[in-house]
Write a protein that binds this DNA or RNA. Structure first.
Lengths: 254, 254
DNA sequence: CGTAGTGTTGACCAAATTCAATATCTGTGG
DNA sequence: CCACAGATATTGAATTTGGTCAACACTACG
């Protein structure tokens, strides 16, 4: 078992609120069955319910929906420390598929155990609720991105957002990051075709804004890129720490 | 004060799980200050935090984001019984604006009170978390809609979804419903221009699928419309009641 | 090697936008 | 009750964006 401090989920929730020793132990308990998963394996299936939630410890994954016409829309990418299938567990239906992109490691969490832990720990529920809210904020930003930005703007904004998320867990910086996504992944996430993704990437490269080659995203001009993409990482910030602190002072902890 | 049974929020949460008398009373307490709001008034402002959540008792509202270039993306429309500003309260920042579309009635809920109620009532937290999850499911569907469907498909799917939601609160049926949205609202929600919205509506009308005129949506051929739009209302269903019960019983296994 | 997945590019096409002009509706004041 | 203004809806023509089809290059890996 890994030391509690290095568990991505603990680190993530810990960024929201200070965790008591008991709470840390509970989170640790959720990681009992951490196991490797090969790339391309489906963890949650659209339309089915396998009653498991996962914590992604290592690797990349994505959530997507397949339309009857065969088109795929990727809703979100998941990086280490992310909770997988949370909504799936709560709604009891799987409205989308979650699939590993790279070889990964996941801890699967039985629903029963999760619900018991949460029902006994209102503070933890609050933290999880907050993590879920942050996820929704990302989906909303994604929606705005697809609905109201040009292809180039979408791409720039998306790669910047991914950079911010990765920086938070120590997997990237303002220079860039390692990124296992194919142009097909990008296309299905951004509502474009793979061919057009290629052209857009070329355009960004030729304009000296960013380079995405050989699995590496390099920000050639971070400032100019942020400007042209209207990128504002506020919605990702953990400014929430302040928020939760406020919340904790107002309501009696349990 | 209205009888608890007729409060939209109570009705909504009650569809998820049976509510105890104490819980009903708590929900009723949240409606202390129900007041009228004129059309076009902003309730929550992008970038500000006014620390209030609302329950929409009557009328229509919408959440949207304005991009620096002036474009607007409507994230969701709200109808009676919807919770407004939930994420806003939890994240302590307002990442989007919520505005009334018609003259409406809202009950504003002070954050402090809401948090106190939730921290003392884990079951209620679960219900709220679930309502929030349903909202996210709608945003996800919206994302898929914009990312991977043609303009006509988007419009059809969107108007069908709205019909399902309204039917749930008794404001519409398979024939159609009264709808105060302008073509600009539709455009900003679907990532189109108002001009193109007009053409798309004409096309749907001329194909005998649906008519949207003078503030009324009429389904001329519900079945054909659902088919062409790949509409599957599963993600809106309240099958959840079963879900929560089942979740308690099931488990481990894979 | 050879194959499958991925990336790259060009020529052509379709969908949606933009610009612009009118029409219609709705509420308001005279 | 009518005239008017502002918002909303409708339509056409020209343009842009992104998609489709097709060919080929590069890379990794058995």
């Amino acid at each position: 078992m890994t030391a509690i401090e290095t568990l991505p989920l603990a680190r993530k929730l810990g960024a929201y609120m200070a965790l008591s020793q008991a709470e840390r132990t509970l989170i640790s308990d959720l990681h009992q069955s951490c196991k490797p998963v090969a790339a391309g394996r489906r963890l949650v299936d659209q339309g089915q319910s396998n009653h498991l939630a996962y914590i992604l410890s290592a690797g990349w994954a994505c959530s997507y929906k397949i339309l009857p016409n065969g088109a795929r829309q990727i809703v979100d990418f998941h990086i280490p420390g992310d909770f997988l299938g949370l909504r799936h567990v709560l709604l009891h239906t799987s409205d989308h598929t979650i699939e590993s992109i790279t070889d990964s490691e996941v801890a699967d969490v039985p629903v029963k155990e999760l619900l018991e832990i949460l029902s006994r720990n209102p503070r933890l529920v609050t933290a999880v609720l907050w993590a879920a809210s942050r996820d929704e904020a990302m989906v909303v930003e994604h929606l705005v991105n697809i609905g109201r930005r040009s292809a180039v703007g979408r791409m720039a904004h998306f790669l910047l957002e991914l950079g911010s998320r990765l920086k938070l867990v120590g997997l990237g910086d303002k220079q860039g990051y390692v990124c296992p996504l194919t142009q097909y992944h990008l296309a299905d996430a951004l509502g474009l075709t793979a061919v057009h993704v290629n052209r857009v990437l070329r355009q960004l490269r030729e304009n000296g804004l960013l380079t995405f080659r050989h699995g590496v995203v390099t920000f050639d001009d971070y400032h100019a890129l942020s400007t042209m993409a209207d990128f504002d990482p506020t919605y990702l910030d953990q400014a929430g720490t302040t928020s939760i602190v406020t919340m904790r002072n107002r309501c009696p902890a349990q």
